[in-house]
Simulated assay, not measured.
Amino acid sequence: MSEKFRSGFVAIIGRPNVGKSTLLNCILGEKLVITSDKPQTTRNRIQGIHNVEGGQIVFIDTPGIHKGRSRLNRYMVDEAGAALEGVDVVLFLVDATAKPVQQFELLQERLGRIDAPVILIVNKIDLISREQLILKLAEYGKLHNFREIVPLSAAKGEGVDRLDRLILPLLPEGPAYFPDDILTDAPERFVVAEIIREKVFRHTGDEIPYAVAVNVEEFDEGEEENGLIRISAVISVERETQKGIVIGKHGAMLKKVGTLARKEIEQLLGARVFLELFVRVRKDWTGNKNMMKELGYE
C-alpha cells in the first residue's frame, strides 16, 4: 500500500541576516525571494511552494525578528509573529558565527508558545571550524528542546537536501494546497516590485535601503502575442537627499537599477519587458500609518 500524501505549512523564522531567504531559494531551486547583506531585506511574509515525492511543503519566509523601533519595524515583527499561527512545523534559523544566547534571546518567549515541532537550523557552517560547530550545537541543545538540530550552509547548498526528509513526516495527511506548477501564490506585481527593491538595496549605500519602498503602478501585458510587457514602478524614499542617491549623477544609478531589474524580470516572466522607473519622496513614510498602507505595508 502506497503512503498517503502529506501537505502543510512551514514557517522560517530567525533574526535578521541569518539567511532565511537564501535558504528558501536554495530549497526551491529557484530565486523566489530577494536577498542582500542589508538588515530587514524581507518585509512581508512570502510563501514558497515546494513539491516533493509524497507531499507538498509550503514554506513561509518571514522578516527577521528584531527590536522594533519605527512603525515599519513593528510591522515586520508582527508579520513574522503572524506567520507562526497555524503552521505545522517551524524552522528556527540561526547564524553559526554568532553566539547562541544572542541568537536565542529575542525568540525564546515566542518559541515557548509554539505548539508545532521546532527544527533548529544552524546556517553558515562553512564560516566556522568543525570544533567550533560541535561546541555551538551542544550549547543550542541546552537552550531548548528542539525536534532536530540541522547544521547546513544555505549559500553553498550543503546539508539542505536533508530537510525534506525531516519535515515531510511531521506534516498532516491531506491534499496539496496549490497546483504543482507554481512557485508562489504571490502576485507577479509583488515579485516584480521586490526585484526592483533588491537592486536598490544592493547598489546604494547603507542609509538608502531601509527608506525604500517600491510600487508597481502599471503592468500591461499588451494584446500582441509577442508584444512587450510594459511595467511602470515608483521607488519611494523619505528625503530629497535619498532621491538624489537613487537617481545618481546624470541618472546613472537609476539606469543601473532599471537595467539589472529588467533582465531579471524578463527571466521571471519569460517575455521582453519595457521597465520605466520613477523616484518619489514620501517624507518619513516609515512612521506614517496611512503612507505605509498605500505602499503595501498594511
Results as ranks from 00 to 15, higher is better:
Leu32Met: 08
Leu120Gly: 01
Leu127His: 08
Val150Gly: 06
Pro179Val: 10
Asp61Asn: 08
Asp181His: 13
Lys20Ser: 01
Val101Trp: 08
Arg282Pro: 02
Phe5Ser: 01
Ala155Phe: 13
Thr42Cys: 10
Val200Asn: 02
Ala80Thr: 04
Asn123Leu: 05
Gln242Ile: 10
Lys283Pro: 00
Leu183Asn: 03
Leu28His: 09
Val257Ser: 04
Ile57Asn: 03
Lys99Arg: 12
Met291Ala: 12
Ser7Lys: 00
Phe146Val: 10
Ala176Lys: 06
Glu105Tyr: 08
Val246Ile: 11
Glu139Lys: 11
Lys263Cys: 00
Gln267His: 09
Arg15Lys: 15
Gly81Glu: 12
Val52Gln: 13
Glu223Asp: 05
Asp284Gln: 14
Val87Met: 07
Glu217Leu: 10
Pro39Trp: 10
Ile13Arg: 00
Gly227Cys: 10
Val33Ser: 13
Met76Gly: 00
Thr41Gln: 06
Gln47Met: 14
Arg113Met: 10
Lys283His: 09
Gly227Glu: 08
Pro39Val: 09
Thr241Phe: 13
Ile208Gly: 08
Pro39Asn: 11
Ser21Asp: 12
Leu269Glu: 03
Ala186Arg: 14
Val122Gly: 03
Leu275Asn: 06
Ser236Trp: 03
Arg202Asn: 11
Asp180Asn: 14
Val90Tyr: 00
Pro39Arg: 06
Ile60Phe: 10
Glu218Lys: 15
Tyr75Ile: 00
Val87Phe: 07
Pro151Cys: 04
Val118Trp: 02
Gln108Met: 10
Lys99Tyr: 09
Arg197Phe: 01
Glu30Thr: 14
Tyr210Gly: 03
Ser236Asn: 14
Gly174Asn: 09
Leu275Val: 01
Ala138Ser: 07
Arg15Phe: 06
Glu198Pro: 03
Gly287Thr: 04
His250Trp: 07
Ile27Ser: 03
Leu84Ile: 11
Phe9Asp: 03
Ile121Gly: 00
Ile196Thr: 02
Gln108Arg: 14
Leu23Met: 14
Gly68Leu: 10
Thr259Met: 13
Gly270Ser: 10
Ile265Phe: 06
Arg113Lys: 15
Ile114Lys: 00
Pro16Val: 05
Gln102Asn: 04
Val101Arg: 14
Val212Glu: 02
Tyr75Asp: 06
Leu72Trp: 08
Leu268Trp: 05
Asp180Cys: 04
Leu295Arg: 04
Arg74Thr: 08
Tyr140Val: 01
Glu225Gly: 05
Arg197Pro: 06
Asn123Val: 04
Gly159Tyr: 05
Ala261Lys: 06
Glu225Pro: 11
Pro179Met: 11
Lys31Gln: 11
Phe201Glu: 00
Gly141Met: 07
Ala80Arg: 00
Leu24Ala: 09
